[in-house]
């Protein structure tokens, strides 16, 4: 599914990033970056290690060391210039509808899987609907159903990834940022996790997946954007990317 012109015309973008720079201390990782994500889109961001994919996601959540530039989430400004206090406003951005599934899982190792999923629905609206949301997550990741009462710290890498992604899906979010969902997993498990992400009905929300392996995204997302040394370089609709590959 690609975003048609009328869809673009109808709704304002979910995410609109303008002139974003971000980094840590003296190091500048993101350089003057612009990005627009529309409702219903599934977008892949592809780039090598250390070229700023994770930093872009963290900057949107307000978790980098410093940042400047405009970030509009569903029309509300959540960016601006900030030189310290990483994470101070993250919870407000999350309340505006951001769900970040971070690299390295960032789990609560002592909570059970069920409590962990509940924690993902922390915002008041999601909390009231957490039972139905949990059912939805279990449909995306069926293996979790048997593990509901197990502490997350005892799970395997693949199960942890499912818990971490499931926590993001519990949120009442309009924008899902998924950072390297297949990283560190056996290829088969990584692929099934990706399949689960592709199968999720987005509705009016949007999903951005950062990934090093283009092959995992090809044909499954609406757009693929390359990232190189802190800048977005080149963009292709997925079908075009697939076509070029066949030609070559």
């Amino acid at each position: 599914m690609t975003v048609s012109q009328e869809q673009v015309a109808r709704g304002e973008p979910i995410l609109s990033v303008n002139g974003l720079s971000a980094g840590y201390g003296p190091m500048r990782v993101i350089h003057d970056l612009d990005l627009i994500i529309h409702p219903g889109e599934r977008v892949g961001i592809v780039g090598l290690n250390g070229h700023g994919k994770s930093t872009l996601f963290l900057a949107i959540a307000g978790l980098t060391g410093w940042q400047r530039g405009s970030i509009k989430l569903s029309g509300h400004e959540v960016g601006g210039t900030r030189s310290q206090g990483p994470g101070r406003h993250t919870h407000k951005v999350v309340r505006r509808g951001l769900a970040l599934m971070p690299q390295g899982d960032e789990i609560f190792h002592g909570l059970t899987v069920e409590e962990h999923l509940d924690s993902g629905a922390f915002t008041p609206k999601a909390w009231r609907e957490r039972a139905t949301r949990k059912e939805g997550v279990l449909q995306v990741f069926p293996p979790l159903r048997k593990l509901m009462q197990t502490p997350v710290g005892r799970l395997s890498g693949g199960e942890r990834r499912m818990v971490s992604l499931g926590r993001g899906l519990m949120a009442d979010a309009s924008l899902f940022l998924v950072d390297e969902p297949s990283l560190g997993l056996a290829p088969k498990i990584g692929k099934s996790v990706m399949e689960a992400l592709f199968a999720i009905e987005l509705g009016s929300s949007a999903m951005v997946i950062a990934e090093q392996n283009v092959a995992l995204l090809e044909g499954r997302v609406d757009r693929i954007i390359g990232m190189h040394v802190g800048k977005l370089k080149g963009e292709a609709s997925a079908s075009l990317a697939q076509h070029n590959r066949r030609e070559a």
Binding site: A61, V94, E106, H109, S119, F122, R167
Partner: peptide, 20 residues
């Protein structure tokens, strides 16, 4: 749950919308 989440991983706690 908010307090226990903060005890285990403050960084992840802010990601689920918990204000430190």
């Amino acid at each position: 749950l908010e307090i226990r989440a903060m005890m285990m991983n403050p960084h992840a706690a802010s990601l689920v919308g918990i204000g430190v």
